[in-house]
């Protein structure tokens, strides 16, 4: 327990240098597993993305630096996903209920959002695996934002 505290208070600790304990690895990896589920269900039901964001926020409030950092990255990754999936969801509803017509623009958006979801899926899998190994997988942009937001 003693070394745990010292470990955390190291002043210039970057996430890359963090050496997590076994349970930390498990919890951080669990974050991404949850995120993975959210990515898969979130496309038809974007409310899941929002729920996941809420859970990650709660997780990020307590726990060690390693766990907090990863839960914040998972949280940030869900935000654009939620916005995009939500737009797609309501657009689809409008088409299904004949408030608007099907268009090539809709299909183009559908494809783009799906590609983004796939990218998110791959990155989440990579994160889940590397956190399990005790390493950190920094996403483009989201990792940088997390670095800024998440302090020791």
């Amino acid at each position: 327990m003693e070394s745990y505290e010292i470990h955390l208070d190291e002043p210039s600790l970057r996430i890359e240098d963090a050496v997590p304990y076994e349970d930390e690895k498990e919890r951080a990896s669990g974050c991404y597993i949850m995120s993975l589920v959210a990515v898969m269900i979130g496309l038809p039901m974007p409310i899941i993305n929002l729920a996941a964001t809420g859970i990650f926020y709660l997780m990020s409030r307590k726990g060690t630096f390693f766990v907090r950092w990863n839960s914040i990255q998972a949280l940030i990754s869900q935000v654009p996903l939620f916005v995009m999936n939500n737009i797609l969801f309501w657009w689809t509803i409008r088409i299904l209920f004949c408030f608007t017509e099907l268009s090539s623009v809709y299909i183009a958006y559908f494809i783009t959002v799906n590609l983004y979801n796939i990218y998110d899926f791959i990155e989440t899998v990579r994160s889940a695996i590397s956190t399990r190994k005790g390493k950190v997988h920094k996403w483009y942009l989201y990792g940088t934002i997390t670095d800024m937001v998440c302090r020791r």
Binding site: L102, S103, S104, V105, I107, A108, Y109, I111, T112
Partner: peptide
């Protein structure tokens, strides 16, 4: 890029 295709 995806907009360039006439998907319908």
């Amino acid at each position: 890029a995806t907009l360039q295709v006439d998907w319908l």
